[in-house]
Nucleic acid binder design. Structure first.
Lengths: 154, 154
DNA sequence: ATTATATAGTTAGTTATCAAACTAATTATT
DNA sequence: AATAATTAGTTTGATAACTAACTATATAAT
């Protein structure tokens, strides 16, 4: 029964992950609404932190999301005036996505709206513990991703 | 910039959690299909491991899910003949859910279908690391749950 | 050059979840 | 006893993700 026991424990870890994900996403979403949802905010935040001008496919890969999902998110952001979609000159299949000034404003508002949540967390929960588990999570994420598609990962 | 840095790190942790959850759920789902989805399997597995005869509300609480979601899952399971829905004698609002023989069979098949995934994980990834982070995840889950509903948690 | 293959992005349809509002039944209050 | 408040479960409608299939373009192979 040794192995069964460990298997149960592994299940439980994935279970906890699922619940945490749902709870944190819901809280985050409530703070951001109604201007953005968490996915849209994620894209804008990425543009500000890392840089814009990415293609939809690249963004889909970065956020571990399918292309159709990213198409939908970009469509929403474009409709709200937070990004511009720019056709490539050299390859007529391609587009690059750029954040607009109003997109930056929305992102900053998102940061302002969610910062209190993180601050409360930092006050009430040992954040060092969270940071400590980060490397394991990263390795697990990388492992699962490779496992899905051993060749190129998405 | 100290605090900003830590805030980013916290974001990244939640981000990793989201991706891991999606990847693991997708792989699990693929292994179970087409008989069950992960939520349905979770309910059946709970019945076998912990015991059946729970009400929909209790199940919703256990799985950190809303009541309508649980209604839907039970409906699917009932349709497939994997559970029986039994009206309470003493309280005509209530129902209790019991697993059927064919439900047990489906759960066992689910275990058999997913066991190899866990075994591969155990072979290729340091599972001890996973088990080591479990207590932090559990505390985080409990904290987020209390935070959502300070009085009674869902 | 033609044809086959691969890539970028979209469209269509499905699914699982949620929140809000509802019905029915029970319990508490006046 | 009558009424108000609560609880159990469902229905409805919305949303965000997915897969499968498609169009259009570009690249590779014959």
């Amino acid at each position: 029964m040794r192995k069964t026991h460990q298997t149960d424990a592994v299940f439980r870890v994935f279970n906890e992950l699922g619940i945490i994900n749902q709870l944190s996403n819901a809280e985050f979403q409530r703070a951001l609404a109604p201007d953005l949802n968490t996915s849209e905010f994620g894209v804008l935040n990425h543009f500000v932190r890392v840089g814009d001008g990415k293609t939809p496919s690249e963004l889909a890969r970065i956020f571990q999301m399918t292309k159709p999902s990213m198409t939908a998110i970009i469509g929403k952001l474009e409709q709200k005036g937070f990004v511009n979609v720019i056709p490539s000159e050299t390859d007529r299949r391609r587009k690059t996505i750029e954040i607009t000034a109003s997109g930056r404003t929305a992102r900053d508002a998102g940061i302002a709206a969610t910062a209190p949540l993180i601050e409360t967390l930092q006050a009430d929960f040992p954040v060092d513990d969270l940071l400590a588990i980060q490397p394991v999570l990263e390795r697990l994420r990388i492992y699962l991703d490779q496992r899905r598609n051993p060749i190129d990962g998405l």
